[in-house]
Simulated assay, not measured.
Amino acid sequence: MLWVDLRNQSNQSCLSSSFDGICHTQTVKQSSTCPRLLNTAEADLICFEYDYPDIQSLHLLQQTRQSDPDLPILMFTEQHSEALAIWAFRTGVWDYHVKPLSEADMVHITDSLKTASEFRDAIKLRNIRCDSEPLPEEVRFRAPTSGESTLQHAVNYVQNHYPEKILESDMAEMCGLTVNKFCRLFKQTYDLTFQEYLIGYRLKESTRLLLNPVASIADVAFTVGFNDPSYYARVFKKYMGLSPSECRQLLKEKREIGNIDTRIMEMKIPV
């Protein structure tokens, strides 16, 4: 297995070393700003590890896919979005994983490594044209600050578990910080508190659910993590300037969608 380390951080990848006992792993550390073309002649499988993908480093994955279209590619990334995942699969990445990985993820990956030869046959059938898939816009952004890197685990967790009960103490532990340091760093980094971010993310997701005419306002509130529909309605009004039912009507009539998107952007929700 060829492991391509395209992280901005210079420390050794703990993720790649976890596969040493499973297969022979050759690690190549690449500069994300100027990646070199890879020699994949002897590789049965290639893994691209990112923290924050950018244009050059994703182009390397595309070029590798073009030069060896039958080679199974796994992609690991710390920054995650729906657009990035869609790009990866359309480009021909066989599997896409968001760090940190759970034990179930590791089991899945380990099992997949045992059938790498079968991957090649399946990839041939997919006949993917990776040269035609445009890069997601978000990879044009600047490199993250140290605060963003430290807090990324918490941000990823909220995006994947926002309907659940989320405690600052758990997020602080996940980021290796005390609660006080976590709260202070979050405020300094994103110019809003963690609770404001959590509420904002839930409100953003609720605007998507409001498009469903079958779902009641209470259903939407419970689905995105608000236990009290009345509180949800008050918070929605405070941040969005209109009630959930008014927002639903505007979305239904396809009016002022741009204004609603602007209100969401003004909440400064990190992605």
Score class of each variant (00 low, 15 high):
residue 2 L to T: 01
residue 98 V to L: 15
residue 241 G to C: 10
residue 11 N to E: 06
residue 193 T to N: 10
residue 197 Y to F: 15
residue 237 K to E: 15
residue 249 Q to M: 13
residue 79 Q to P: 05
residue 246 E to W: 07
residue 47 C to Q: 08
residue 203 L to K: 06
residue 37 L to S: 12
residue 4 V to M: 02
residue 157 Y to E: 10
residue 241 G to Y: 15
residue 183 C to K: 15
residue 170 D to L: 02
residue 31 S to H: 02
residue 204 K to G: 00
residue 206 S to A: 14
residue 92 G to C: 08
residue 241 G to F: 15
residue 176 G to M: 13
residue 248 R to A: 09
residue 97 H to Q: 14
residue 47 C to G: 10
residue 175 C to I: 05
residue 88 A to V: 01
residue 85 A to E: 07
residue 260 I to A: 01
residue 156 N to Q: 03
residue 52 Y to L: 09
residue 79 Q to V: 02
residue 11 N to S: 10
residue 36 R to E: 10
residue 68 D to M: 05
residue 235 V to L: 15
residue 14 C to A: 08
residue 191 D to H: 15
residue 188 Q to C: 02
residue 240 M to C: 12
residue 221 A to E: 11
residue 162 Y to F: 13
residue 262 T to G: 05
residue 108 H to E: 03
residue 163 P to F: 10
residue 11 N to R: 07
residue 92 G to V: 05
residue 83 A to E: 04
residue 132 S to D: 08
residue 19 F to I: 01
residue 165 K to D: 04
residue 122 A to M: 10
residue 236 F to P: 14
residue 183 C to T: 13
residue 214 V to Y: 11
residue 265 M to S: 04
residue 97 H to S: 01
residue 6 L to G: 00
residue 267 M to V: 00
residue 197 Y to H: 12
residue 239 Y to N: 11
residue 78 E to L: 01
residue 249 Q to T: 11
residue 247 C to Y: 14
residue 4 V to F: 02
residue 148 E to A: 12
residue 58 L to S: 01
residue 113 L to C: 14
residue 41 A to P: 06
residue 244 P to M: 09
residue 192 L to D: 02
residue 189 T to Y: 07
residue 4 V to Q: 03
residue 105 D to W: 09
residue 244 P to C: 11
residue 199 I to G: 01
residue 157 Y to F: 09
residue 219 D to R: 13
residue 75 M to E: 00
residue 178 T to Y: 10
residue 67 S to N: 12
residue 3 W to K: 00
residue 64 T to Y: 01
residue 154 A to F: 03
residue 201 Y to F: 15
residue 28 V to I: 15
residue 242 L to C: 11
residue 172 A to F: 12
residue 254 K to W: 07
residue 75 M to R: 09
residue 206 S to V: 06
residue 183 C to E: 14
residue 178 T to D: 07
residue 219 D to F: 13
residue 245 S to W: 07
residue 227 N to D: 13
residue 22 I to E: 04
residue 210 L to M: 07
residue 198 L to S: 10
residue 119 F to L: 09
residue 106 M to S: 06
residue 68 D to Y: 06
residue 101 L to K: 11
residue 60 L to I: 07
residue 165 K to P: 00
residue 10 S to Y: 07
residue 7 R to S: 05
residue 248 R to S: 02
residue 262 T to M: 07
residue 30 Q to I: 10
residue 180 N to I: 06
residue 160 N to H: 05
residue 246 E to T: 13
residue 145 T to A: 06
residue 153 H to Y: 11
residue 127 N to E: 02
residue 152 Q to E: 07
residue 211 L to I: 04
residue 175 C to E: 09
residue 242 L to W: 14
residue 25 T to K: 10
residue 210 L to Q: 06
residue 51 D to F: 06
residue 231 Y to L: 15
residue 167 L to P: 00
residue 118 E to Q: 12
residue 112 S to M: 11
residue 63 Q to E: 03
residue 36 R to G: 03
residue 94 W to I: 08
residue 73 I to C: 00
residue 186 F to G: 04
residue 161 H to T: 01
residue 23 C to M: 14
residue 142 R to Y: 10
residue 222 F to N: 08
residue 43 A to N: 14
residue 258 G to D: 09
